[in-house]
Each structure stands twice: as C-alpha cells, then as structure tokens.
C-alpha cells in the first residue's frame, strides 16, 4: 500500500464557497443563472448531511474495496499509466453507475435527490443523496480494485470526479468550444438536468463526455429549446427529509400494494415510472409521445414550397 492520496472533496470546500458566492454575484449583477433561497437552503442542507453520512459510511466503502483488492488479479504500481488507466476506469464506472441510477428505480430512489431542484446552479451540485450506500453506488468501482488498482487511488479519482462535476452546474458558462467534444461541460450537463422530453436520459458522463458519444446517449443542448430543470413530476416541497426519502416511500407503497413477485421486481428494479396498469410514464414513453407530437406538428406545418404555392 502506498502513501495516502488527498481527499479532493474536503480540499475543494473553500473553492465551493468562493464559486457559489461569485455565481450569486453573477446572478444579481449580470442576470446570469438564478437562485431561490429555499431551494438553495434545501440543496446545501442535503450536501452537508451527505458529507456527514459519507464520513459515517466511508469505512464500509473502503472495506469493500480493500476486500476486492485483497483478491486482485494484477499487482499495479503507481506509474503514470496506472494513474491514467485508473482515471479512465473510474470515469467509465461512473458512467454506468450514473446511467443505471436513471434506469433502475432502486438506484433512482437515491439519485433523484440530485435532480429534484428546479434550478441549475452551483448549489444544485451540492444537493446530494443521503442513501447512496443503500442504492449500491459503490459496487461499480469494485471491479477496478479486483483488477489491482489501489482502493485509495480509485477513491481519489472518485473524489476528483465529484469536484470536476461541481463547476459544470452553472448557467453562467454557455459553451466552451472544442472542450465540448471531449469533456463534460455546463452545456452538456444542463441537458442532463432537464426534464424536457427530448433531453431525458442523456449525458451521463462524469468527466469525459466521450462515453455518451460512444454508447449513444449524447444529446446536444439546442439553443432553440432551453432546458427546464427538475423532475418529470416535480416535488411540492423544500423539506430535506421529504426530498431525501420521497422515492423510497413511493417504492414502499408500491411494493406493499404488489400482488406478485413480478410486480415487486418491477416496482423496485424496473425503470422509474413503470407500473402494472401503465398509468404512469417511463422516460421512454415520454420521449416516444414527444416524438409523435413532433411528427404530428411537422405534418401540420406547411412546407416552404406548399405555402408559396397556396
């Protein structure tokens, strides 16, 4: 085991404070972005408690990675290419964790917290779940430890990814030129936080947007359709306890009313919005309905040729 690596999230806390202050100034002075006091209070409260829970459950997560590392396949050192591979591996693991956190309700119940704000600013970045361990978020990087990457190196890059993803939660920065091709940016992540049907379930990247381009989940921000932030069914509360647990409560109610194992599995591991009677809508259904409306609208709109001849 090598020397410890720094905890990037703890080191970044002063920078978080300075950048939030600067963004609030940009909102008031330059009318860029938007803050709402109760929304900010809810987001920051979620963030503070998340930090505390992280300290409390840290040993479990480190222990699981140490256990996997104990059974490692390769002995990897700390050469530059090992760091590079670990960064790529952690970022790829994050992509799949994040994608499944949107596609499987058990994991969504935890991740939904981060998407529950109607605002998109730096405080939204800190609106973090309290139930990440329960939703099994940590299992996605266990294969890296099994391959032989040091757990401390994996957790270092996980922290670095979180810090990277902080600054992209802003409307102050529009687009970033060629940087947009390779990296996750404010523009790409605005799409991810939008509930406009065309933007649903897109841009899951942590640091590299290349994964979305590779796996077919990339959607570019369209200046003609500004993102509307939040959930398909937005919350009517700023109460942090309700924000933290609302989807778990909903799962509990659905499971309690289930009449078969298939229903229980559907309500826990099916896509969010799945229901036995089809009375709710998954994002796939919402997107399909949006496409139908778009096609119907396009068919009704006269083309240039037909309007000129009529």
């Amino acid at each position: 085991m090598g020397e410890p690596l720094p905890n990037m999230v703890l080191l970044a806390i002063p920078a978080f404070a300075v950048l939030v202050t600067l963004e609030i100034a940009a909102w008031r002075l330059a009318r860029r972005g938007r803050y709402e006091t109760r929304d900010t209070a809810a987001s920051l409260t979620m963030g503070i408690v998340n930090l505390g829970i992280g300290v409390a459950t840290g040993a479990l997560i480190v222990g699981a990675h140490e256990l996997a590392y104990h059974h490692r396949i390769f002995d990897l050192d700390r050469s530059w290419w090992v760091f590079l591979l670990c960064f790529l591996g952690q970022d790829l693991a994050y992509y799949w964790f994040h994608r499944l956190a949107h596609e499987r309700r058990w994991m969504w119940a935890s991740h939904v917290v981060h998407h529950s704000s109607r605002h998109y600013n730096l405080s939204t970045a800190l609106r973090q779940t309290w139930t990440g361990t329960l939703s099994l978020a940590f299992i996605f990087t266990l294969p890296l430890a099994l391959l032989g990457f040091e757990p401390i190196m994996i957790l270092f890059f996980a922290g670095l990814s979180l810090v990277y993803q902080f600054w992209i939660h802003t409307e102050v920065i529009r687009t970033m030129g060629p940087f947009e091709w390779v990296f996750n940016t404010p523009s790409h992540h605005r799409v991810h936080h939008a509930f406009n049907p065309r933007y649903l379930d897109a841009n899951y990247a942590g640091v590299l947007i290349l994964w979305d381009r590779l796996f077919g989940t990339f959607v570019a921000e369209d200046p003609a359709e500004p993102p509307r932030y939040g959930l398909v069914k937005n919350l009517g509360t700023f109460n942090p306890l309700k924000i933290a647990f609302h989807e778990w409560v909903a799962i509990g109610r659905d499971v309690a009313g289930s009449r078969s194992l298939r229903e229980v599995l559907g309500y826990t591991w099916g896509p969010p919005g799945w229901s036995t009677d089809g009375s709710r809508k998954t994002s796939a259904i919402l997107k399909a309905q949006w496409r139908e409306r778009e096609l119907a609208g396009a068919a009704e709109r006269p083309t240039l040729g037909s309007s000129a001849s009529s």
Binding site: L10, L11, I13, P14, F16, A17, V20, T21, I24, W27, R28, Y35, E36, T37, R38, T40, A41, L44, T45, G47, I48, L51, V55, S123
Partner: peptide, 24 residues
C-alpha cells in the same frame, strides 16, 4: 474544514435572501 462548512452554508443562504431570492 468540515466544521466550517455549516457556516458557509448559512452565509450562502443569507446572501441569496439578501439578494431577493425568496420569491413565490
């Protein structure tokens, strides 16, 4: 660092309120 975080949180909430962020 962790102990200073609640102070920063309260300051940020207060700042948004002072800037007119409490809107219905």
């Amino acid at each position: 660092m962790l102990l200073m975080a609640p102070v920063g949180v309260l300051a940020a909430i207060g700042l948004t309120w002072l800037c007119g962020g409490w809107v219905d």
